[in-house]
Structures are given as C-alpha cells and as structure tokens.
C-alpha cells in the first residue's frame, strides 16, 4: 500500500479551479520534489493535504495509509503523521515555543492513544534536537516564531518535524527567504530525518534546494496538473530550459 495516494484531485478556491485532476503516489522512504512556476498549484496541493480551510475539493481522492484524508480534521491528519512545513511560519505572540511544542506533541500522542511525554523526557528530547539544529535555548523561551529571522523560522519548522516524527513531511518552498548558509542548516536537518519509513514532498520553485535535499523523483506541475515526472535529472533539465515548455503541454 502506498503511503500517500492522490487520485484525480480537483480543487476550487472560491469560483476558480486550481487543481484539475492531479494524481501522485508516494511510498514510504521516497523523496518527491514538486516543481513548477508560480500559480501552478504547488502550494494549493500542500494546503489541501494538510487540511487548510478555504479549499473546496470538487473531485478525486487522497488516501493516506489507506484512509480517506479529506474526511479528517487538520489535527487528525497531524496525529496520523502528516506534517506541513509552512512556507511562511506564523508568529504567535504570547504562546511560548516550549509550551506550544509540548501541547502539540502531547495532543498528537493522545489522539493516537499513546502516553503523553513527561516533562523531563520532553525537555531532554527538545534540547537534543534543538542542539543538532543550532537552535539556541533562548529561542525556545520566546513566543512561537516571534522575532525569529527567516532562517530561524524554518529551523523551528524542522525542529517540530524532528520532534513529531511524522511519516509524511511536506516542505512548502522551504528555500524562500533563506540565504545559502541558512538553507544548508535547514536542509541538513531535513536530511537527518530521511528514513526508510518516512516520505517527503519537497515543493520548490528553484532547483537550488534540490542540491541539498536530493530527491528520488521530480514532478513538474503546470496549471494544476503534473505534466512530467522523472528522476533528479529532470530538475537539472528544468534549470537549463525553464518552465515555458510545460506551459504549453498543460
């Protein structure tokens, strides 16, 4: 059974159809890159998988571990192992990062019928992960993402990914707003999480990110569909020739 199976997905936002019958299969352990020009529907796809309100699914299906993902609330999807690393992580003043992380982790564990983490175990785990990602302790005491730089926000997303141990990670434009050093730190964090049980969907406009997170498969999206799929060579090909050739194909 595939981890994620998207069949002929059609999605509208208000009156406009954004995805026109998208299909994609992701198995455990695979890293898929989704590339495409602005407006091709990449972010819409990530939002629909995570359950963001405001999108109307008018056709098709998303199966996750064999279950109908579209029937689940966003928190149920998270507990089941879906993790979306946001393109623009929000700032939440007044909610301390530590408190947020513990509440979220224990909510997921509780939903899965697992024991909640004790405070010492939780702290130990967070400190370990934070250290590996170069996240200073004082950042964890601040409000969630409040006053964080672009790089810090993305590292905080990777921190959560490491903590929640999801089976599917969707990285939405992780490279946006990052300089090369910040990108390398975030990408190293992501690579450390690659495992035979975990799949990733890396959404990006540029090939650059894929030098750091090397995908097994590359899909090109245009106008709400996957128009071409291949291996990592396809990304290099795109870098050379641009997206224009696919605009017509779609």
């Amino acid at each position: 059974m595939a981890l994620l199976e998207i069949k002929n997905l059609q999605v509208r936002v208000e009156e406009r159809e954004i995805l026109h019958g998208l299909s994609l299969t992701v198995n455990e352990g695979e890293v898929h890159a989704i590339m495409g020009p602005n407006g091709s529907g990449k972010s819409t796809l990530s939002h629909v998988i995570a359950g963001k309100p405001g999108y109307e699914v008018t056709g098709g299906q998303i199966l996750f571990k064999g279950d109908d993902l579209l029937e689940m609330e966003p928190d149920e999807r998270a507990a089941k192992g879906v993790f979306l690393a946001f393109q623009y992580p929000v700032e939440i003043p007044g909610v301390a990062t530590m408190n947020f992380l513990r509440t979220a982790l224990n909510a997921q564990r509780k939903a899965r019928g697992e024991d909640e983490f004790s405070t010492p175990d939780f702290l130990k785990k967070v400190r370990e992960v934070a250290k590996s990602l170069n996240i200073p302790q004082d950042m964890l005491k601040r409000g969630v993402n409040v006053g964080f730089s672009g790089g810090e926000k993305k590292r905080n997303e990777v921190l959560q990914m490491a903590l929640f141990e999801p089976s599917l990670c969707i990285l939405d434009e992780m490279d946006s707003g990052l300089d090369i050093d910040a990108l390398r730190v975030a990408a190293d964090g992501v690579n450390a999480l690659r495992s035979p049980e975990r799949a990733m969907i890396v959404i990006t406009h540029y090939q650059r990110l894929l030098n750091y997170i090397v995908p097994d498969f590359v899909h090109v999206m245009s106008k709400g569909r996957v128009v071409k799929s291949g291996d990592k060579e396809l990304a290099l090909e795109l870098e050379a020739s641009g997206y224009a050739q696919f605009e017509d194909a779609a």
Partner: peptide, 16 residues
Amino acid sequence: FYLRARGLREKQAQAL
C-alpha cells in the same frame, strides 16, 4: 490553522 496542523484540536487551539 497553524496550531491545528500541529495536532491541536479546534477548541484547544482557540484556548491557547
């Protein structure tokens, strides 16, 4: 949505 995408139920996210 950010909080719910991290596993918090609706009322729990509101409460936070």
